[in-house]
């Protein structure tokens, strides 16, 4: 991996949750929600993380935001490991690293007005007069396409899209360098989704904010990302530039995922070879490739020997012994 001066670098990140023991003497079993994840993100770019339920993508987000303590590994932001940094550095990290949550209903305190919601970060980190706070609140609301008339409203008086705008206004209040968006548009209607995606792109253009955009919907991720990582069962199985991953998917799971996306036009309907089965439950401990039992390319050694994530081509890493041949995704 090339990037020593990356904005954020995740190294060998692991999070294992202990499972309740059924019998006293039973050996402790773990859910390996995140199991050795490596990636980096540069200033001003967007990294999409795609995965299905149980892939561990949201756990990665929580670890980066230090809402969870890792079992192992590092998350280095601006050169500091976020888990071991000094108190002073932590303050700085908390300002420059922000998050937008999925649920526009649960992520805003129902008893706070829009003004209180967007100025809360300023209240915590900066000392401002009441007047200044009000001005900043107004500026932030305008930044995300809301206005003065919204200042004193409560969350339930906003639509889903407007709430997500509020969450974004709150996230940009401290002029962050990186925002982690965990399924930030998944709960929104199509027409509103596009508004929010455009807003994020606009903010990136204006302020050079980097995004980690976590989602299960491939089209939205493709639209907003520069690079895309595909997660499966706690591991990144493929990571590459956006165009590359769509034109030249190497991991059979990536290919299966692309195949499963419904067509954008009935003309593009096709007889597809669908991948069978579903994401394995976590407690299956395998020494081999986690995709082994669903994979069409799988051979005997995949069962015992887990492939490593290796940069096979420039900016294109994948973890597979028998990658797909370079056949373009037929249209």
């Amino acid at each position: 991996m090339s990037n020593e001066d990356a904005l954020l670098k995740v190294t060998d990140l692991k999070k294992h949750f202990p499972l309740p023991r059924k019998k006293k003497k039973q050996e402790q079993a773990y859910v390996k929600a995140v199991d050795g994840v490596n990636f980096y993100i540069n200033a001003g770019e967007t990294l999409g993380i795609v995965g299905e339920s149980g892939s561990g993508k949201s756990t990665v987000a929580k670890l980066i935001m230090q809402l969870l303590q890792p079992t192992d590994g590092q998350v280095v932001f601006h050169g500091n490991d976020v888990f071991t940094q000094s108190k002073k550095d932590r303050k700085q990290t908390q300002k420059k690293l922000q998050m937008v949550f999925q649920d526009p209903y649960g992520s805003l305190n129902p008893r706070m007005t829009a003004k209180e919601i967007v100025t809360e970060p300023l209240l915590i980190h900066e000392k401002l007069s009441k007047k200044e706070l009000e001005l900043r609140a107004l500026g932030l609301l305008e930044e995300v396409g809301l206005g003065m008339q919204h200042l004193n409203r409560y969350p339930h008086q906003f639509s889903g899209g407007q709430r997500q705008r509020l969450s974004i206004a709150r996230a940009i209040a401290l002029k962050p360098d990186l925002i982690v968006c965990d399924e930030a548009v998944s709960a929104l209607d199509v027409s509103i989704q596009a508004q929010i995606l455009n807003l994020l792109k606009q903010l990136q253009k204006n302020y050079g904010i980097a995004f980690i955009f976590i989602a299960h919907g491939l089209p939205a991720v493709k639209h907003i990302s520069d690079r895309i990582a595909i997660m499966y069962a706690g591991k990144i199985v493929e990571i590459a530039d956006k165009e590359e991953i769509f034109k030249n998917p190497k991991h059979p799971y990536t290919k299966a995922l692309l195949n499963a996306v419904p067509p954008s036009h009935p003309r593009l309907r096709k007889e597809k070879t669908l991948v069978q089965g579903e994401t394995p439950s976590f407690d299956i401990t395998t020494s081999g490739c986690p995709f082994y039992n669903r994979c069409m390319n799988a051979k005997e050694d995949c069962k015992t020997n887990a492939p490593e994530l290796i940069e096979h081509e420039k900016h294109h890493e994948y973890a597979c012994h028998y990658p797909e041949q370079a056949s373009n995704r037929e249209n």
Binding site: V190, S191, I192, Q193, A194, Q195, L197, N198, K201, L218, P219, A220, K222, H223, F246, L258, V261, S264, N331
Partner: peptide, 15 residues
């Protein structure tokens, strides 16, 4: 407004 795998433009066209 719907992003698709074929969309090329930088910004979507929301309603």
């Amino acid at each position: 407004a719907m992003p698709t795998l074929e969309t090329q433009s930088d910004l979507l066209d929301p309603i």
